[in-house]
Structures are given as structure tokens and as C-alpha cells.
């Protein structure tokens, strides 16, 4: 999995590509923890994310909970596979998906 960071003031955009699974989720979690303290908007660009497992969902839910306290989080351009997992788990209803 690759993570690209793009910070514009209070807005952080992370572009994920590849597979967010048990082995790669901790990387994303570390990255978020480093950067989410002084932002008000978190955007996850998921156009290139092919695959997500529960480990990835866990990180995203943690991020959502965190951002609810200090701003907002948006998910962008979900691939079919990822969108299906979001729908299965009810994540599609509790997150802002663009």
C-alpha cells in the first residue's frame, strides 16, 4: 500500500493505493496519528484502493471518531470492492462519502 500526503492548511488529504489489510493497516494508523492533531478536515482519497479488510476498517473508524471531535472526515472515490465492504458493514451510512 502507498500513502500520499497533501496538507493544505487545516485540511489533510491522504491518497491510498493498493491493499489496506491486516499487514498494511498499522502503517496508515501510524501516519494518521502523526498528522491528525492540528487539522480540521481529513480527506481520504481511495480511488486507487483495491482492497480493504477489517483491519483497514478499524483504522478508518478510529480516524472518523477522532475527526468527529475536531472537524470532519471525507472519503472520496471508493472503488467497487471497497464500497461493497463499506456497505456490508454499515460504514457507508456513518461516513461522508463523496
Amino acid at each position: 500500500m502507498k500513502i500520499e500526503k497533501d496538507r493544505k492548511g487545516q485540511e489533510l488529504t491522504l491518497t491510498l493505493s493498493g491493499r489496506l489489510d491486516t499487514t498494511t493497516a498499522p502503517t496508515l494508523e501510524q501516519e494518521l496519528q502523526q498528522s491528525w492533531n492540528d487539522i480540521s478536515t481529513l480527506i481520504l482519497e481511495l480511488k486507487e484502493l483495491d482492497y480493504i479488510s477489517s483491519a483497514g476498517l478499524r483504522v478508518i473508524l478510529t480516524a472518523q471518531k477522532h475527526m468527529l471531535k475536531q472537524g470532519s472526515m471525507k472519503l472520496r472515490n471508493l472503488s467497487d470492492n471497497v464500497r461493497e465492504v463499506f456497505e456490508m458493514t454499515g460504514f457507508a451510512d456513518i461516513m461522508t462519502i463523496e
Binding site: S53, S54, L57, R58, L61, T62, K65, V85, M88, T89
Partner: peptide, 8 residues
């Protein structure tokens, strides 16, 4: 945050 694996 957990418990989604077997659910999936």
C-alpha cells in the same frame, strides 16, 4: 472499532 472480521 473491532469485531468486524468474522462479521464480514
Amino acid at each position: 472499532v473491532g469485531g468486524l472480521g468474522i462479521f464480514l
